[in-house]
Amino acid sequence: MKLHERIDGRLRAFIEAQHLFFVATAPLSADGHVNVSPKGLDTFRVLGEHAVAYLDLTGSGSETVAHLRENGRVTIMFCAFEGPPNIVRLHGSGRYVALEDAEFDSYRTLFTHHPGARGVVVVEVERVSDSCGYAVPLMSHDGDRDLLTRWSENRGDDGLAAYRATKNAASIDGLPALG
């Protein structure tokens, strides 16, 4: 493993070339559930040497939102599934900017339109590392799934708001999330 002072040009190029990333968070409670969420659909942006953001899309859970609102701890991981092996981890302090927050619009223009957008996760990166990834399998990217996009379009803005109010109001541990 190698520690880096910042997200430099090489790391940025690697991160931006990945089609998939993983977000890990946890509540403060020792009895709470650690969460790892896979993300894709071109929703990740490097904002600077110590800052990143990703567009959060409506989904079945709201663990990341709840954990960030409780304690802000977050790790984002990228794995090379093609080309030379590599794993990059970004550890930091994250915050959630909801769709209805005034600040949301300043981030929205960084991303392509996704009808299911519910917020943006903004992370101040405190630790950057990469490691070998020798055991990560080689896999090819055949394309993005369009299921979430179609599901969101079919629900419409009002349907998505209702879904988030009922399904994303709290984490599985009962922490407040959306709604």
Rank of each mutant, 00 (worst) to 15 (best):
67 H>S: 13
69 R>P: 12
80 A>I: 06
110 L>G: 08
110 L>A: 12
22 F>R: 12
76 I>C: 08
38 P>V: 12
39 K>C: 13
113 H>G: 04
47 L>P: 07
85 P>D: 15
100 E>L: 00
38 P>A: 09
37 S>M: 10
34 V>Q: 10
36 V>C: 13
108 R>W: 04
63 E>D: 06
100 E>A: 06
62 S>F: 01
84 P>K: 13
44 F>G: 11
96 Y>F: 06
30 A>I: 05
81 F>V: 15
78 F>W: 10
41 L>T: 09
90 L>T: 10
25 T>Q: 09
53 A>Q: 09
66 A>M: 07
66 A>P: 12
98 A>P: 11
86 N>G: 08
78 F>R: 11
104 F>E: 07
22 F>M: 09
98 A>M: 04
43 T>F: 03
17 A>C: 04
115 P>Q: 02
57 L>C: 08
27 P>E: 06
28 L>G: 09
27 P>S: 08
87 I>V: 10
46 V>Y: 01
44 F>C: 10
63 E>F: 02
75 T>S: 15
96 Y>C: 03
106 S>P: 04
100 E>D: 13
71 N>I: 02
94 G>L: 05
109 T>K: 00
32 G>F: 00
53 A>V: 05
112 T>E: 11
55 L>S: 15
25 T>F: 05
110 L>Q: 08
16 E>C: 07
80 A>R: 10
66 A>Y: 03
78 F>I: 07
72 G>N: 11
71 N>F: 05
78 F>K: 12
38 P>C: 07
58 T>D: 14
58 T>P: 14
18 Q>P: 13
73 R>Q: 12
60 S>T: 00
55 L>M: 15
81 F>N: 14
108 R>N: 08
79 C>M: 09
92 G>M: 13
23 V>I: 02
95 R>Y: 02
38 P>W: 01
19 H>E: 15
18 Q>I: 03
41 L>K: 08
60 S>P: 00
89 R>W: 04
94 G>R: 01
33 H>L: 09
50 H>F: 14
109 T>A: 05
35 N>E: 03
22 F>Y: 13
27 P>N: 06
47 L>K: 14
56 D>Q: 02
67 H>F: 07
50 H>D: 15
75 T>F: 01
68 L>V: 09
113 H>R: 05
66 A>N: 11
95 R>F: 00
97 V>N: 03
92 G>P: 11
70 E>I: 14
68 L>K: 07
29 S>E: 14
23 V>N: 05
65 V>N: 15
42 D>H: 03
79 C>N: 13
16 E>N: 11
111 F>W: 08
92 G>H: 11
73 R>I: 06
60 S>D: 04
53 A>M: 07
31 D>H: 13
62 S>C: 08
39 K>H: 09
97 V>P: 00
91 H>M: 05
111 F>K: 14
73 R>A: 13
107 Y>P: 12
88 V>L: 04
41 L>Y: 13
